[in-house]
Design a binder for these strands. Structure first.
Lengths: 326, 326
DNA sequence: CTGTTAGCGCTTTCAA
DNA sequence: TTGAAAGCGCTAACAG
C-alpha cells in the first residue's frame, strides 16, 4: 500500500501518483484516471508521516491548556479546533495542569517538527519558563500573556471590564462592593484587581475588600464569600473574577440566609454556559471565547506562513450580560 | 542540527549517535560522553517525524469527542490525557460535533500512521459509520459502544444504575417519578430508559412519564420539565439522564414556584463538578469519569502492543451521591 | 506530460 | 564496540 505499489498497478511512476495525490495540474486526464483507479483498487492511504517529513510541515498545532475541565478553557479550545479545522490543521492537546514537566514533553514535539506551532493558555507567571522551551518557534499566547515576550497574544481589556463592572454595581446603588479574586499568578487577576481599585477611587467609595480564592472552583468561591461575611461591615455586592467562583459565592450566600440580589448582588466573569440556569441567573462579563480561540489560530498561522510577520497584541471586546443576580 | 552534524562534531558515525539517543547499551562510556557533549554544544533536537516514520509508530492517540464543552466529556478527556502521558503517549483531539466529515479528516491520520490508535466517545448511532472509516485499526469505544462492533469498550451498567435510582426515589416516598431523557441516538438513553421502565413495573408504580430533551443543555432540561408540568397529574420526582439536564430541571421548577425537593425531587447523572454548589445541591449518579478515560487508554495500548489480544467490554462501577435535591 | 533520481532524518541490520 | 549502507514513504528538481 505504498505509493510504489500504486505506481506499479497503474503502470506509471511514483512521481505521477504523487502528482495526482496533490492535485497537481499537468497530468493527462486518462493517466489521472488510471492512477485513481489503482488507488481505489488497492484502497491506498498515503503515509502522512512520510509526507510531513518530506515537506517539513505537519499541519498540526499544539494547544497547551492548564485545565480542560474549566469551562472557559474548553470553550476556547472549541474555537481553536473549529478554526484550525477550517484551515486544514489538526490540534494536539496538552492538558498540562500547568506542570512544566508535562508541557516540556509536548514542546519536544514542537522542536521535533511534529507540530508547526503552539497556542498557550497558561498563567502569565509560567510564561517565562515556557519561553525557554519554545524558543522562537511560532507561538500565540491566548487569554494570558507576558508583555515582555515577543509572541503575539489575544485577550480582552480586563482592567476596563473590571472598572466598568464596579461602576455598574455602584449605579445600582451598591456601596460596599467586594472583589473575589484568585491567585496572582494570572495576569488577569492583577488587571481586574487594578480596574476594581481604580473604580473604587474614582467613585469615592471608601469601602473595599478583596478575598482571594485558593483556586478556581465553586468551593473556593464559597470559602471566599464566607470570609467576606465575617467582616464587621458586610459587602452588599460581590464581583467575582470567574463564573465558577461566582457560583460558589451565590451558593454560600443563600446558605447563609442572604437573598440574592436583594441582600447581595453578584457578578461573575467569563460567560460560561450554564450560568443562565442558576437560581438566580448570574450577571456576568462575557468573554468572546470562541473568537479568542479562532483568532489565536489565525495569528499563529500568519506567523507560520510568514515567519517574520510582526508580533501583534490583539484586544477583543467583552460584553456585560445582565441577569437577575444583580 | 541533524543527527549527521552531531556525528561529525563528535567524530563518530550517525549510528553511534542514534545508539546514544536511544539509550542503547554497548556504547563505550567515553564515546557516549563525546556524543552527549556534541548534542549539547549544537543544541540538537531529534526530528521526531523521521523517527516515527522509521519505527512505524508515533506514540500518539486520537481522541474523538462529540463536545469538549460537555463537562462529562472533558473529565473523561482529562483521564485519558493523564494515563496517556504516564505511558509515554500524546493525544490528538478531535472535537467532532459528531460530524462525520470532521471525524473522517482526523481518521485519515490513523490510516496515515500519524496516530497509533483511537478512542471514541460518539453516540452509538454513529459508530457503524465510524467502523467503515476506522477499519481494524486499534480502537476503544468509551462510554458509548455498539455491541456488534469488534472493538473493546469501557462503560458503566446504565440499566442497573437507572433501575436503582428509581427504587431509591420510591423508597423516599415518591410515587410519580418522571424521566427526562435525551435523544435516542445514545446507547445510554436506551439503557437508562429501560432500567427506568423495569423499575416502575417491578415497583408497581402505575404513573410513569418520559420527556425528551432536544439536546443535552440546561435549557433543554428546563423545557422538558415544563412539558412534564403540563400533565394532568404532575410528577413528584424527576430523574434526568444528565446533570446538565438536571440543572435545567431545577431551574424551571423553582421558576414555576415549586420547592425542591419538597414538591419535586430531582436526581441527575454523571457527577460533574459544580453540581454540589447548586441550590439545592444535586443528588446524582456519579460515573468514574477519570477512570473511564484511563482504562480506555490501557485497553487501547494492550491492543496496540499485542494486535491480537482479545476484545474486552469493561463495566465500571457507578455511585449514588445523595444531596439535598432528593 | 511523465520518469529518474536524490534526498527529508532517522533506525537497524550486517560486517568489521 | 563501532561504521557503512539500506530503506521507511513521500515530494521535488531536473531531464527528457
Amino acid at each position: 500500500m505504498s505509493i510504489e505499489k500504486v505506481a506499479h498497478l497503474a503502470g506509471v511512476s511514483k512521481a505521477t501518483v504523487s502528482r495526482v495525490l496533490n492535485h497537481n495540474p499537468g497530468v493527462r486526464p486518462d493517466t489521472r484516471a488510471k492512477v485513481l483507479a489503482a488507488i481505489d483498487i488497492c484502497d491506498y492511504q498515503p503515509n502522512l508521516l512520510a509526507r510531513q517529513l518530506r515537506t517539513a510541515q505537519s499541519h498540526m498545532l499544539l494547544v497547551l491548556i492548564p485545565d480542560i475541565t474549566n469551562p472557559f478553557c474548553s470553550r476556547v479550545v472549541q474555537g481553536i479546533e473549529a478554526e484550525a479545522e477550517a484551515q486544514g490543521y489538526h490540534i494536539l492537546l496538552c492538558n498540562s495542569g500547568s506542570q512544566l514537566r508535562r508541557e516540556a514533553a509536548y514542546i519536544a514535539l514542537l522542536t521535533g517538527k511534529v507540530v508547526d506551532g503552539v497556542i498557550t493558555m497558561d498563567a502569565a507567571a509560567c510564561l517565562q519558563e515556557l519561553k525557554e522551551l519554545i524558543g522562537d518557534a511560532p507561538w500565540v499566547q491566548c487569554a494570558e500573556y507576558d508583555p515582555s515576550i515577543a509572541a503575539s497574544s489575544v485577550a480582552i481589556d480586563n482592567k476596563e471590564a473590571a472598572f466598568e463592572t464596579v461602576c455598574y454595581l455602584a449605579s445600582k446603588g451598591r456601596r460596599r462592593i467586594a472583589l473575589v479574586n484568585c491567585d496572582m499568578r494570572y495576569l488577569y487577576s492583577h488587571q481586574r484587581e487594578e480596574g476594581y481599585r481604580n473604580a473604587l477611587e474614582k467613585l469615592d467609595l471608601n469601602w473595599g475588600s478583596v478575598a482571594y480564592a485558593e483556586n478556581v472552583s465553586c468551593d473556593a468561591g464559597s470559602a471566599a464569600l464566607r470570609e467576606l461575611l465575617m467582616l464587621p461591615e458586610r459587602p452588599d455586592a460581590v464581583f467575582a473574577v470567574s463564573d465558577v467562583l461566582a457560583v460558589g459565592v451565590i451558593h454560600a450566600a443563600l446558605e447563609a440566609g442572604l437573598r440574592v440580589p436583594e441582600d447581595l448582588a453578584v457578578v461573575g466573569f467569563d460567560g460560561i454556559n450554564f450560568t443562565s440556569s442558576l437560581n438566580p441567573p448570574l450577571t456576568t462579563i462575557e468573554q468572546p471565547m470562541n473568537r479568542m480561540g479562532a483568532r489565536s489560530v489565525q495569528l499563529l498561522l500568519n506567523r507560520i506562513r510568514q515567519p517574520n510577520s510582526p508580533v501583534v497584541h490583539e484586544v477583543l471586546p467583552w460584553k456585560r450580560v445582565e441577569r437577575a443576580s444583580s
